[in-house]
Design a protein around this nucleic acid. Sequence first.
DNA 1: GCGACAG
DNA 2: ATCTTGTCGC
Length: 231
Amino acid sequence: MTPHPLRPRRAPTTEEEALALQRKLRRYVLLEDSGPEPGTASTVAGVDVAYDDERDAVAAAAVVLDARTLDVVDEATAVGRVAFPYVPGLLAFRELPAVLEALNGLARTPDLVVCDGYGFAHPRRFGLACHLGVLTGLPTIGVAKTPFTFRYEPPGHGRGSSAPLMDGDEEVGRALRTQDGVKPVFVSAGHRTTARTACAHTLQLARDYRLPETTRRADRLCRRALRARHV
DNA sequence: GCGACAG
DNA sequence: ATCTTGTCGC
């Protein structure tokens, strides 16, 4: 699944190594729509990770939904040991090893993957969602729950309203209201997509709640897997 | 140098 | 992320 030239011989251990790999991988991100147009995706996967720092354990989940009905059609989990500390800007190195393993457990490849975090909205424009997209070749988007270090003006009150998410003078994503009057979510492009398309996908997935159904399902599943030490 | 900082 | 009680509202 991972293209040969992009797979490191060994996972980064230090921040310096991780930064070097990030600089290398970021050249492969595609920021145009070669993934599914909004409404045309057949299946959409959500991925998320839960931790037990006491036991140095990590559990990842990948849940595939029917994009039209939002029904669960497939799911997989993976448990392992934490491979990297939490460092803002290097989250991918902490989360993705387990996520990749969970994705490998799926019966079929999804049309789109929704990440719990950022994509292009990142200090070096290579967040979790971009990283996962480059490693898998799949279209990905990032949907985060907090604005990180970025700035935004509150979007309109209604579902579907959005406002630019800014890193200085550069728009890196959108603050998107997914339900009337709720706090916005923070959407950015991952791989093979754009912020505009990512917002449209997010709205379709956040039909009933603030967060996309993909994220809600994956969050629930990885927590359960962590407690049960499922594989 | 110090604090802030996706999850 | 995770630690955690009650509480307000549909």
